[in-house]
Simulated scan of single mutants.
Amino acid sequence: MKRAAIGLLTVLLTASLAACGSSSTPEAGGTSSGAGSAFPVTVDTMFGQVEVEKAPTRVVALGWSDAETALALGVQPVGASDWLAFGGEGVGPWAKGLYEKAPTILGTQELSFEAVAALQPDLILNTRSNLDAKTNETLSKIAPTIAAPKDVIPYGTTWRQQMELVSKALGKPDKGTELIATVEKEFKDAATFSGKTAVVGTYFGNQYGAYVPGDGRVDFMEELGFGTKKEIDSLAKGTFYVEISTEQLGLLDADLTVVFPIGTDAGVLRSDQVLNNIPSAKAGHLVILDDKALSDAFSSGSTLGVSYAIKNAVPLFTAALRK
């Protein structure tokens, strides 16, 4: 970071501290009345313990689906990153109407620390990220920053872990437990796929790929009772995704194969003769998620998005396996 940028960040940090010290009225992004009794709280993260001294009133949500998680808890971030490029308020349709005031949309891979500091946050959520230590160090100088838990791969924080971290940091652990229990029941009611294997793939930038254990999409299938395919699992090297060449598309074969496009039309997948000739496709057990809202929900990793995906994707899986 250049000297000028550092100077600006210092000025903004000073302003942030002054504003937090002088304000007594919660703003957008604040917690509901009575939440202050839960503080101070200490949250364990992969970078150590983070203390949140009082109920935050200006929350910035930077991690994948952190904003949706805060919204599910009744807290409206003042700034958020739009990882799935929803546009507008930066959240999926399952979170529509939860904002009273749209947040400032911030970067994802190219994050401006100055833009974050300018929002004068008193809490930063970055629970599902690339796990970069320098980014966490810089953000922590702006405000207490809730990073990922220990022992996860990049972007591998589960929806449970995310809800636990965020609800504790916001002083709403009971609400978090309640939301987790609701989604767990939905999974339990839908988990009728024991003994079946599933592979989740995607097509992005003219390249196929498959998700591996530790990724939320694979976790989703496992919670429904599906097993993973060991040939794909063995390709994982600390990442959530592995590339699959056209010659390797047979690796996507399983009892159920789920594929969706990113940045292109699903027609590319429907017309791909190689994909449509793998055994699962020929048996009718290939599900191409051509509804962007559904594929986004499947990828969201928030309690809100996961619940939407259970309701709308599971019937497609069931119908495919009945063929």
Rank of each mutant, 00 (worst) to 15 (best):
M1Y: 06
K2V: 12
R3G: 07
A5E: 15
A5Q: 04
G7T: 09
L9D: 03
L9G: 02
V11Y: 08
T14P: 05
T14H: 08
L17R: 12
T25K: 06
E27A: 08
G30K: 05
T31F: 13
T31D: 09
S33R: 09
A35D: 12
G36W: 06
G36A: 11
S37E: 15
P40H: 09
T42F: 03
E51K: 15
V52N: 06
P56L: 10
P56W: 00
P56Q: 05
A61R: 01
D66W: 00
E68Q: 06
A72P: 03
G74M: 11
P77F: 00
G79V: 00
D82I: 00
L84R: 12
G87V: 02
K96L: 06
G97N: 04
L98M: 02
Y99L: 06
I105M: 02
Q109I: 09
E110C: 06
L111E: 06
F113C: 06
F113W: 05
V116T: 12
A118I: 02
L123M: 11
I124S: 09
K134Q: 11
T135E: 15
T135R: 02
E137N: 09
K141M: 12
A143I: 13
P144C: 13
I146P: 14
A148Y: 02
K150W: 08
I153Q: 14
T158G: 14
E164M: 04
L165N: 02
L165A: 05
A169F: 00
E178P: 02
L179G: 10
T182V: 14
K196C: 03
A198S: 11
G205H: 05
Y208K: 08
A210N: 09
D215Y: 01
R217H: 11
E222V: 13
L224V: 13
L224N: 09
L224T: 12
G227I: 11
I232H: 14
S234K: 13
L235I: 03
A236Q: 15
A236T: 05
T239V: 15
S245I: 05
Q248W: 00
G250E: 05
L252E: 12
L252Q: 04
F260R: 02
P261N: 09
I262H: 11
I262D: 13
I262S: 15
G263N: 09
G263C: 06
T264D: 10
A266R: 00
R270D: 14
L275N: 03
P279R: 05
S280G: 07
A281P: 03
A283E: 11
G284W: 07
D291N: 14
L294V: 09
L294N: 09
S295M: 09
S295G: 10
A297Q: 05
F298L: 07
L304W: 03
S307I: 08
I310Y: 10
A313D: 14
V314C: 00
P315Q: 01
T318N: 10
L321R: 01
L321F: 02
R322F: 03
